[in-house]
Design a protein around this nucleic acid. Structure first.
Length: 506
RNA sequence: GACUCGUUAGCUCAGUAGGUAGAGCAUUUCCCUUUUAAGGAAGUGGUCGUUGGUUCGAAUCCAACACGGGUCACCA
């Protein structure tokens, strides 16, 4: 039996007693005609009424019992629905003979969902409450709730049992309401800009579009392996080849890598591709999106993020990659394109690195170590080295530079965009180089995607594309510092995994 | 993956010269018809994360493992 502790057994007995008393502990077709919030709004006038009540009206609402204070022949109960708490007053003499003592006190308890009818009144302490004239069980809870004052604190339980977290910490619901609003606002905004929302495969024959290790799954009928997508990029660009000129997708990506406060194995990204536009247009669109989000969410332009304050006033700052290394990291201007000088800089700052790294990778080490965390206000980094931008178009002015930007807020990467490489031969060679890297042991290097090359062979209009991490976007806008606090059911290790199961998988 | 801290009643937490476990809330019984973590009285409730080891004796000391938090690494 899954419910076998003493509290659960007691509650099951109460549930059975309800049945014996002719009351279904799980009835359906509940007719409620108001909510806790509407009750408080609609009956505020009771406070100024002479009798401090209005017993000419009767309303019905449902909620979960969060507090129960029985004082002999009367009780105060706080019930909670989606919108909040409401106090109800239950007195013996207002209920059918015997109901209060035999049913209410014996069979109904904290955690149960009840439906009550009654009229509004003001208590001695001037709290607008419902004076109950009818009360019934709506859903019997056979699991006791955590302690009412401290609630549920344990992070592990909060993530594993999000439903319980939501019951005990109702504020978490606000984060997910905001998340929903952010996604729907983003979707509406993109559609208004003329983008078409599309859905591309989640199961890929080749995991491409990013450098990351994929999850592998199996197709039984075909007897082949599939990879959960690490990015939708290559499919979306096939659609540009096919003739759509502005597409976007908001959906999940899967990366088989470590988990921490900014990484969940499945995460939500918006990617969009815009033909006949360039990455400057993307940056403008990103600014416009943020302005829209702040106004839609009714947020001021300066938002707290932990100890920081982030100023979202547009236009956002722009800084070139090499300038950031010089001005923020403190690399000497003449050293920026000098491999040996970059190594000297890294050594002088006690950064461990691989001596064989290319110049761009050395720059990246410096960037990651000394620049990224300092990009607090929204900032576009531009003029990336081509060497660390395998899918981006080469600059016409400087072949070492990619027409690309990354967007940082609060010291974290939020978006990445660039002019797409549409030269099929150049793309073929870059894939070939990645394949060589893979052969040398880089298990995150791209594989050759011949169909994608074929697609580019037909000609992809000049296109700019961008990916925005939705989870991180939600984090910075809601002042949450763990990705697990913006994902309803974050990935957790399984409990009770046996050693055998584990060794079987190794 | 590394380091580190944690895991004790349903929940929040105490608990070492090593001597078969405590509080508050919850729960059970009783009192109480305007409470606000209601109050008063008396009870029930625990494989002290798991498995081994040291010991006459382990929640406590040791080891391994599991899960979680934090930091780092990985993640353009």
């Amino acid at each position: 039996m899954i419910f076998d502790n003493q509290y659960e057994l007691q509650r099951i007995e109460k549930s059975n007693n309800l049945k014996t008393a002719g009351k279904n502990p799980y009835p359906h077709n509940i007719q409620k005609d108001t909510s806790t919030l509407a009750f408080k709004q609609n009956f505020a006038y009771v406070a100024s009424a002479a009798t401090q009540r209005d017993d000419t009206v009767t309303v019905t609402l449902s909620g979960r019992i969060k507090f129960l204070r029985v004082m002999g022949k009367a009780a105060f109960v706080k019930i909670e629905d989606e919108e909040g708490l409401l106090q109800i007053y239950v007195a013996r003499d207002n209920l059918p003979e015997g109901f209060y003592n035999d049913v209410f006190k014996k069979m109904i308890e904290v955690g149960d969902i009840i439906t009550v009818s009654g009229y509004p009144f003001l208590t001695k302490t001037e709290e607008l409450s419902l004076h109950v004239t009818a009360l019934d069980i709506t859903t019997k809870s056979i699991k006791p709730l955590p302690e009412k004052f401290h609630g549920l604190q344990d992070h592990e339980l909060r993530y594993r049992q999000r439903y319980l977290d939501m019951i005990m910490n109702p504020d978490v619901k606000n984060i997910f309401k905001l998340r929903s609003k952010i996604v729907s606002t983003t979707r509406t905004f993109m559609e208004e800009q003329g983008f078409l929302e599309v859905e591309t495969p989640m199961m890929h024959p080749i995991a491409g579009g990013a450098n990351a290790r994929p999850f592998i799954t199996h197709h039984n009928a075909l007897g082949i392996e599939r990879f959960l997508r690490i990015a939708p990029e290559l499919y979306l660009k096939r659609l540009i080849v096919g003739g759509f000129e502005a597409v976007f997708e908001i959906n999940r990506n899967f990366r088989n890598e470590g988990m921490d406060h900014t990484h969940n194995p499945e995460f939500t990204m918006m990617e969009f591709y815009w033909a006949y536009h360039n990455y400057e247009d993307l940056m403008k669109l990103t600014e416009d999106l943020f302005e829209r989000l702040l106004s839609e969410l009714k947020l001021p332009s300066k938002l707290p993020y932990g100890e920081l304050e982030i100023d979202y006033a547009t236009p956002f700052a722009k800084i070139k990659w090499e300038d950031a290394l010089v001005e923020i990291a403190g690399v000497k201007r003449e050293a920026v394109r000098d491999r040996e000088a970059l190594k000297t800089f890294l050594k002088a700052n006690n950064v461990k690195f691989d001596e064989n790294l290319s110049m761009a990778k050395l720059q990246e080490e410096i960037f990651d170590e000394f620049v990224e965390a300092k990009l607090i206000n929204p900032t576009f980094l531009t003029h990336y080295p081509i060497d660390i931008s395998p899918l981006a178009r080469r600059s016409d002015e400087d072949p070492e530079i990619a027409e690309r930007f990354e967007f940082f807020v609060g010291g974290a990467e939020i978006a990445n965009g660039f002019n797409e490489l549409n030269d099929p031969l150049d793309q073929y060679e870059r894939f070939a180089a990645q394949v060589a890297n893979k052969a040398d042991g880089d298990d995150e290097a791209h594989e050759m995607d011949e169909d994608y090359i074929q697609a580019l062979g037909y000609g992809m209009a000049p296109t700019a594309g961008e990916g925005i991490g939705i989870d991180r976007l939600v984090m910075i806008l809601t002042n949450q510092h763990s990705i697990r606090d913006v994902i309803l059911f974050p990935a957790m290790k399984p409990l009770n995994i046996t050693k055998k199961e584990k060794s079987d998988n190794e």
